[in-house]
Design a protein around this nucleic acid. Structure first.
Lengths: 335, 335
DNA sequence: ATGAAAGCGCTAACAG
DNA sequence: CTGTTAGCGCTTTCAT
């Protein structure tokens, strides 16, 4: 008498109905070429008729492989990730992997919690946003032995595969673009300063100092960024630093919000105020004027991650590597 | 001799190191109050020292419960879901459930594939975007017997829990707002016509016909919506129907894009053209003029889903139910 | 080409 | 409060 019967259709049920053993059914479903044509067809028929759904947990437990990969993203509402994700998903799903998404809410502790959870689900690899992790997270990841990807930023000490771009250098390059166009009293606006935002802030500061200019016109907040926030922050900055002639916005949403605020105030962009964002989202090409930004090759990041990861999943040895995908400063109309 | 040793730390290792059996370790970790204080502490210590990570697959296999819930969303880049997701996640994670996200790309077939996958992962419940599914998906879902949520739309024949709003009625109400303000040659712009978009289109048509007005000024495309697309589509519509005096945009992104195009053309909104979007995203409050829209209570949807689902997960019987969360037409500056 | 036996790591049920 | 036993559904190994 079974201890508990889940009521679910199992390999055994199919086996009984066809008159073979369950291992043959298992083979027919996973490695059809190892089973005789006739039998295979009868098994497939029976499986369909009974509505068989394989139990992956049992399969993973028995085989030690789950055919799934965890992708951690900071925020569901951040459009930056959707293209990266598309590249990853297309590449990996073709290779038979399922991509499980988890979201960290920009918190390293939540990231740690998710790492713990997904490891306990037995994922075969993990993709992380960023190169900073809690000590405990590092320990868990290293100990797990599975392939890892750290993305968006670059680090000198990758855990495994690192695909990203130099956020700080990109910020320097964008600041350079302001300087070239004659802006001097350039401010910085940042919301929810995650590590990447901090790197950009550092880049702006470095270039400003190098040019002998003041870095005081800087406003940041831990609040999540939004269009509204961009407008509100610009208003605060204009009030506080009336001589402001340009604003480096930490991302495109803030930049668009700031632009809307300028329109409200009939402030000419770029004549009276230069504006730039970061990431190169769709909206930067849609506004009037269009928005200067740093375009990041997100689709390429996704594709590259999928490619590199597949190699590791197929047994390529762990050789920590760092792939710089670069960036492009695009000035458009607002600068 | 073990057949294969995964090298992973298991309950047995901890048990050996402490000098008890593995079931006691299991209990100490899951139901601490059932184990003596002293033993519990020693076990916890050993677990930490050895770097134990529980194997959830084994746990789920043995217990029949995975403590995880699948949340399917159409698109990662659609901000509509981030708030719904927040409500769901907060509610369910407090109850000890892990939320696994999958994205369907607006495809019912991909949804079916994900349903299959997540069922095979043994999720304890599933949350679906919409009330339309393939026949096969319906079969899988019904057969699984797990709690289900269908959201965003309303249906007369819910599979289980249905939390949403009447998309068609909302579209009628928004069209009404156009009519009240004297607009008559109102067009409709829609991208990627998923079922909700179709319901809205139907609502617009119904109200227009009822008012004896023409529904010919309608432009739709299967392409994904974006700000750029909104601008391009408005351009096409103005060219084709020069007398257009208003546009019902199927979502806020398109509406914002259309507004940007008007700014480019120095077309006065709402004077020469009335505009409205749908959803009530942040951007509708940020532009100049602000955008008319239908605000949907997304956070409430998320909270309600979490509450209803918890009841079902705790054993409340399956009584198909339908919760209408309503909507609010907000006219703002563009109408 | 098919099968038998064993076991992945864990928890349920029942005993003591 | 702790242990014994059995088994979740599948795959691996080895045999035929």
């Amino acid at each position: 008498m079974p201890r508990r019967s889940s009521g679910r259709v199992t390999l055994q049920h199919i086996a009984d109905s066809v008159g073979v053993t369950k291992i043959t059914v298992s083979r027919a479903l996973r490695e059809p070429h190892l089973v005789s044509e006739d039998l295979r067809l009868r098994i497939e028929e029976a499986a369909a008729a009974l509505g068989y759904i394989p139990n992956r947990q049992a399969g993973a437990l028995a085989s030690g492989r789950s055919q799934s990969v965890a992708l951690l993203i900071p925020s569901l509402s951040n459009a930056v990730f959707s293209e990266i994700q598309r590249g990853i998903e297309e590449g990996l799903s073709a290779a038979g992997y399922q991509v499980l998404i988890g979201h960290t809410g920009y918190s390293l502790l939540e990231e740690e919690r998710l790492i713990d959870t997904y490891l306990s689900y037995g994922v075969d690899a993990m993709i992380l946003p960023g190169t900073r992790h809690t000590d405990q997270a590092r320990r868990l990841l290293t100990r797990s032995g599975i392939p890892l990807v750290e993305t968006l930023e670059l680090t000198d000490t990758p855990l495994d595969i690192n695909v990203g771009l130099d956020q700080s250098a990109a910020a320097v390059a964008l600041t350079e673009a302001f300087l070239e166009r004659g802006y001097r009293r350039i401010g910085f606006m940042g919301a929810r300063l995650d590590h990447r935002a901090q790197l950009r802030l550092a880049g702006w500061k470095r270039r400003m100092k190098q040019a002998g200019l003041s870095c005081e016109r800087c406003l940041t907040t831990p609040r999540p960024s939004s269009y509204r926030l961009g407008g509100d922050m610009l208003a605060s900055m204009l009030e506080r630093w009336a001589d402001l002639d340009g604003v480096f916005c930490n991302n495109d949403d803030l930049a668009a919000g700031a632009l809307f605020e300028c329109q409200r105030r009939h402030l000419d962009v770029p004549g009276q105020l230069g504006l730039a964002g970061f990431n190169g989202l769709d909206i930067t090409e849609a506004t009037t004027p269009t928005l200067a930004t740093v375009v990041t090759p997100r689709r390429r990041i996704g594709d590259l991650i999928a490619r590199k990861l597949q190699a590791r999943l197929q047994g390529a040895p762990l050789v920590p590597c760092r792939e710089d995908v670069g960036f492009e400063v695009v000035c458009r109309g607002s600068l």
